[in-house]
Structures are given as C-alpha cells and as structure tokens.
Design a protein around this nucleic acid. Structure first.
Lengths: 324, 324
DNA sequence: GCATTCAATGAAATCGATTACAGTAATGTT
DNA sequence: AACATTACTGTAATCGATTTCATTGAATGC
C-alpha cells in the first residue's frame, strides 16, 4: 500500500506537495504532473482513515433504519444514496431492527468514525441522540420524528389515514377496520387518527372495536387480520397503516378465499412486489424515495454549514384508489 | 469529545495504561478502576478512526450488493448482519446498481478505510478485484462467482432450474418458457441451463424460442412476459430465474386475466411480499439468509487467520410445488 | 542478603494523511 | 536598487489511538 511519502520521494517533492495536488491547492504544473505520474505508477490512493483522522470528518453518511427487509426503507435508502452519490458522498446502511440499543451503537460508531452526518429513521420515540447532538454532528430524522428539535422529513400521515378510510367508505363498505403499528411511533399513531376521524364521522359502528396494534411486519399484519376475521361481526374492509402489514392482511384474506370486492383493502405505502392487480386495492403511495432524496439534500446543506433553525419538511402522498 | 489523554490525566495514569484497560491487557485493578471511573465521567469512547489507523484494520465488514431493493439481497444482508453482530463486527452495505465502476469505488473505499473484509455479490463476471486482492484483504463471493480463485458461497443453480421446469412439465404444461437474467451472470446462465436440459428431454417444442433475457428487475420480467404473450403460439407456463422477474411476469399475467392453472408459473427465489396464495405457484426457495450467514462465517474465519486454499460452499435449495 | 524474574507502567514512536508556519525565488513598485 | 508582494514549497506539528522499549519495584530462588 503506497503512502504519500512513497509518492513524494518518487516524484522528488515533499509529502505536503503531494497532498496539495490531491486536494486542489495551488502547485506548479511541473511538480503536479510529476506527482500524478508517480501516483499512477504506484497505484496510490489516499488512505481515508488517516485523512479522516486529521480532517475530523469523512465523506460518508450514515443511514440508520429499523428494517432493511422492508421495501419502504430500501426505497428510501435508494433515494438517499442517489442524492449522496451525486454530491460525492458514500452511504453506509445500518439496520437497527427496531432496537434502541443497536441504534445507539450505530450512532456511536457513526460519531467515532467521524462520519459527516446521520439520517435516522428512529426506532422509537425515545431514541437517544445525545451523543450525536453533543458532538454537533448534523442529523436529519426521516419518516418518524425523534422527539428532539432537529431537522426532519415526514409525510402527511393523518391525511393518509383519512384518504385510505374515505376511499373504502366511498366504495360502500360499512365496517372499516384498521391494522396499525405499535403505539409510540408517531407515524402509526397519526395514520390511525386519520382513520378514526373518518370512521367516527361515518358512524354506524364502533371503530375502536376494529382497531388492532401489530408489529410493523408481515407476521404482525397476518395475526391482526386473522384476529379481525374471527370476530363475531367481522369487518368488511380494512386499512393497513404500512405496506408489510398490508401484505400480511392480504395473505390471510386470500388464504381465506376473500378477495376484493368481497372485502375492501386499503394500504398506506406501496406494495412493489405484490404481483397483484393494482386495480383491486387502494394504495396511498408514500413517496419513499423522495423522502430519502429530501433528507439527503437537507443533511448535505447542514454539512456544508447551513445553520438556520431546524426545519421539518412534509411531503405529500398520492392516492390511487381501487377501481374495482 | 474526550480523548484517551483526558481520561489519562483525570485518572492520573499514562495514556498507554488507558489503552491497555480498554484492550484487556494486564493492568492493576487499582488503576484499572480509576480509568474506568474517569472514562465514565468523561463519557469516553475510543475514536475508531485513530484506532483503525494505528491497528491497520477495523471491525467493519463491507457487504457489496448489486440491488438493495431486491428482497433476495436484503435477506442475504440480514444473514450477514446477524452473524457479524454475533462476532462483534458491524456491517456496512454498499449498493452497486450492477455497475462495475460503482463497485470498484466501493471496494476502493473498503480497502482505504481498513475494513476487515469484503463480502461481494459481483455485478458481473468482469469485476475488478485486484485492489482488494493485492492488499491481501479477505473477500468472499456470494451468490455469483467472480472469476477469481477466491472463497465463495453459492447455491446449486442448475438443479434449481431443473426443478422449476420439471415441476411445470409434471403438472401437465407443454410449452414451458424461461425468463432469465442478462448473459454473463453465471447464476442466471446455470439456471437457464437447468431449464433447457429438462425442456429438451421433454421435447414437443423448441425451447430456444421461449427463452428471454431480461434485466433482473420487475420491469425486465414484465417486458419479457409481455413479449412471450404476444407470440403466435404463446407458452402455457413460464420459469422466472429470479424473484423480481417473477413478480413482473405475474403482474403481466394477472393484468391479462391469466392466472393459475390457466398458465403455470415457477419462480426461483422467494416472493416474500407477493400477497399471493402460495399454493398457486411453484417456488424454488433460495436460502438467501443462509447464504449471508455462511459467507459471514467464512469471511470471519479468514479475518481470524484461516489460510487454507479458497473454498466454495454450495447450499441446497428447497422446492415448494404449486398444489393447484 | 544478593541475584534473578516478572508484572506493571510510562515515555516516545508510530500509523498516513493534512496544514500552520517559515522560507525562497520570482515578479512588481517606486 | 531597495523593498513589497506573490506564489510555491518544505519542515514539522497534529489528529487519537496502539505498541515497542526501557524502567521500576516487588517477588522469588538459592
């Protein structure tokens, strides 16, 4: 592994000059080309560890998400990555598994590796961000709020819940249930609230009886749906507040021989790999990729020295209603 | 940000002693506890950049994959991560987008960040691994082979192709098509070969006419399936050699009003979010998670000094045949 | 009681870059 | 001609840890 000293001695200049060439500082063309030639023959690339130790930062952004197997988050990740790449940053992905202690570990790593900043989809509303904040590293919350006064990029969750529920009532369903995530995640709570408002206004049944909290994954959706189906008076439609629970619900319904329009289904979040005819269910599209792009953009502004007070950007959802 | 020197002076010992305490070297209990107390009050964590510069390695594994939005790779990533966590390593995920130059960049980063090793699902068969190999860093190829004599973890691809095709013929279908990936990816080529062998032995049609190369994503599968359906004598069944192309094919079929058993479908690779009744399609399960676990295990053995000649481990698939 | 070991400790070198500072040569000013 | 300015360039300090080497003091052997 060639170092800057090897290059320097081959090019008959000082290490400082080599460094300058690689950092765009003024160097005579004569020496610069000697350095470039020497670097090429030695196959030299600057050691990022040394550089980041000295400069106290690196061109790497940490993206910390709760579930790497959820297409919503991978799509978000894709957005972050595309934007970051364009600005010369690399992205490393850290999976917390909804576990605040894993989350804390990754944040600690991000700091002590001098990473340029953090984009975080918090595992819960009691994430511990003190380590990041006390070091003054930029951080942006995405999808969920973190309970600190920091930058954030969210979607308008309550309207999403309202839209999903309204679409089903409008299609003629009478008892619209709701499968939502764990309490304490504001995204889930808000979407539920949206569903509840519409359901109450609609009347004709007791919404609370048809509300289920589940984990945010397929198995959670399955369990909740199975539970709903076993009711004495089961719902005739259901809103799932995230994509994976929606998949679980759809699976259980299809296994029970229930498909649209016998039972109405609305899902908040895209189902990219559902292989379903999109006309049969209502989808409230969450702009996952765009969340990522926007968060990356904000973070990079902060990295570049933007010091205005923390902002929260709220993105709009798109709704595509079942046509059947 | 507290350093080892701050801790040292607070605990009235030398920096060397602080380092020893944190690295399990012999230190008198008296001083050790003083150091621990000082570290706690200063909220000290060792700076990983400095450590890794000095030790010339870090406890981070790079996982380089072609498509982070493909559930197959995220499931694989999950396996890597679980194993790595258990051994005290962190995993950073790098997405190459099937682009060999992005791949090269990430490998370069992995090296110059002194990462402990690399797990690579190669973007193609002409990936450039010289930088990693010349530095002697451990590397394991996973899912696809890289054209170098290095460790690898694969699945038995040809039997997978055979199993998928056989299941469809056995169910009575006559013209079984195949939607496969780009040429030059051995995984795809082998699966295709398996399909071809069975199709030729079966006879009664010209398999080559029913073979389509597509990209490995949903849109590729859609395009190929649409093309197959437009044939004068369309196939009555299709094998998709990866999960996303399978999803694309299923979408097109369902939009055309064709579902099992009118058209038979077999997919190589799980469809975790399909929301389909699993009884209607044949799935050859690729043990994605297990690929990840195994690769991580091999890599960590190498990191720990294992020097036996390169090995390739081949994992078995499981087939679940459509019951309808 | 003296020599020998041994464990614990600290001072200083080290990893590979960046950068403050000082020095030098060339050019411009008056 | 003396001086100021500009524009490179090199020396050495620095980032924050680890590790070699020398030193100290205590324990052990005879």
């Amino acid at each position: 592994m060639a170092t800057i000293y090897d290059v320097a001695s081959l090019a008959r200049v000082s290490p400082a000059t080599v460094s300058r060439v690689f950092n765009g500082m003024p160097v005579s063309e004569e020496k610069a080309s000697a350095v470039r030639a020497a670097a090429a023959t030695l196959n030299f690339t600057p050691n990022r560890t040394a550089r980041s130790l000295r400069k106290q930062n690196s061109e790497v952004i940490a993206l910390v998400i709760p579930d790497i197997e959820n297409p919503f988050f991978t799509s978000l990740a894709r957005g972050v990555e595309d934007r970051a790449q364009a600005e010369g940053y690399s992205v490393v992905l850290c999976n917390t598994d909804d576990d605040t202690s894993k989350e804390a570990t990754y944040l600690e790593i991000a700091i002590s590796e001098n990473m340029a900043g953090v984009i975080l989809a918090p595992a819960s509303d009691h994430s511990d961000l003190t380590s990041v904040l006390s070091r003054g590293r930029p951080i942006v919350a995405v999808d969920r709020s973190a309970g600190y006064d920091i930058d954030g990029v969210m979607v308008d969750n309550r309207p999403a819940g309202q839209a999903a529920a309204s679409a089903l009532f409008k299609a003629g369903y009478k008892r619209v249930a709701c499968i939502t995530g764990p309490q304490g995640i504001d995204t889930a709570d808000e979407r539920t609230m949206g569903w509840r408002q519409v359901a109450i206004r609609q009347g004709g049944y007791v919404p609370e009886l048809y509300l289920r909290n589940a984990n945010h994954r397929v198995d959670g959706g399955r369990a909740a749906m199975a539970d709903l189906l076993s009711m004495e008076v089961p719902p005739d439609a259901v809103v799932a507040t995230n994509n994976l629970m929606g998949v679980g619900a759809l699976q259980v319904l299809s296994e029970a021989g229930l498909t649209a329009p016998a039972v109405g289904v609305a899902v908040i979040g895209a189902l990219p790999f559902s292989a379903l005819d999109p006309a049969t269910i209502t989808i409230v599209e969450i702009p996952a990729r765009n969340l990522g792009i926007t968060a990356a953009k904000m973070l990079i502004e902060r990295i570049n020295g933007d010091t205005q007070p923390p902002r929260t950007i709220v993105l709009r959802n798109e709704i595509s209603v079942a046509s059947a």
